[in-house]
């Protein structure tokens, strides 16, 4: 009996560069309105656009948004290993989510959930700190990163 294998993909959604509040430097626009459901729909649409019904059928049962944080726009996706290339290509060609222009970068791909979780926690903290530095001083980094950590570690395959 062969185990069903997955790929865990850590992604980050980023908006285009805009001038920061201080005026001089550029920073990536943070899109507030994305939810896990929206992301899931966008992914399905993208796979349908690139690979058609066949592609959608291949990944539909395994594709899942396991975690998504609104504060950092970092998410963990799970997809069956056989078809993860389809997901990566679809991510490459995504240019907007629900009408707001953005792009998606893959931060980590792995076969075990633990590595994805660790990477997610690290990127989460880094992004929160960066956002705080860029003028969102009202951001409660301690609390948010603690919550994110708890939520991420709760994920099970």
């Amino acid at each position: 009996m062969v185990r069903f294998k997955n790929r865990w993909v850590l992604i980050e959604i980023l908006g285009g560069p805009v001038t920061s509040k201080s005026g001089e430097e550029y920073e990536n626009h943070h899109i507030n309105s994305i939810t896990a459901g929206m992301l899931h729909n966008t992914l399905k649409d993208a796979i349908a656009a690139n690979y058609g019904e066949y592609g959608l059928g291949c990944v539909q049962s395994s594709l899942n948004v396991k975690y998504f944080s609104n504060h950092t726009n970092i998410g963990i996706l799970r997809v069956s290993r056989d078809y993860h290339q389809m997901l990566l290509v679809s991510l490459f060609f995504i240019k907007e989510i629900n009408g707001s222009p953005c792009y998606i970068t893959v931060r980590h791909i792995g076969g075990t959930i633990l590595k994805a979780q660790r990477a997610a926690i690290q990127y989460d903290l880094e992004t929160l700190l960066r956002r705080q530095q860029q003028g969102n001083s009202s951001l409660d980094v301690d609390r948010l990163s603690r919550n994110a950590k708890e939520e991420i570690m709760k994920i099970e395959s």
């Binding site: 990566l88 490459f92 970068t105």
Partner: peptide, 18 residues
């Protein structure tokens, strides 16, 4: 033509594989 069309090297490798 605009900044959103730039992709990271890792994503480009995925494109290359495809």
């Amino acid at each position: 033509l605009n900044a959103l069309e730039i992709r990271s090297p890792h994503d480009l490798i995925a494109f290359g594989v495809s």
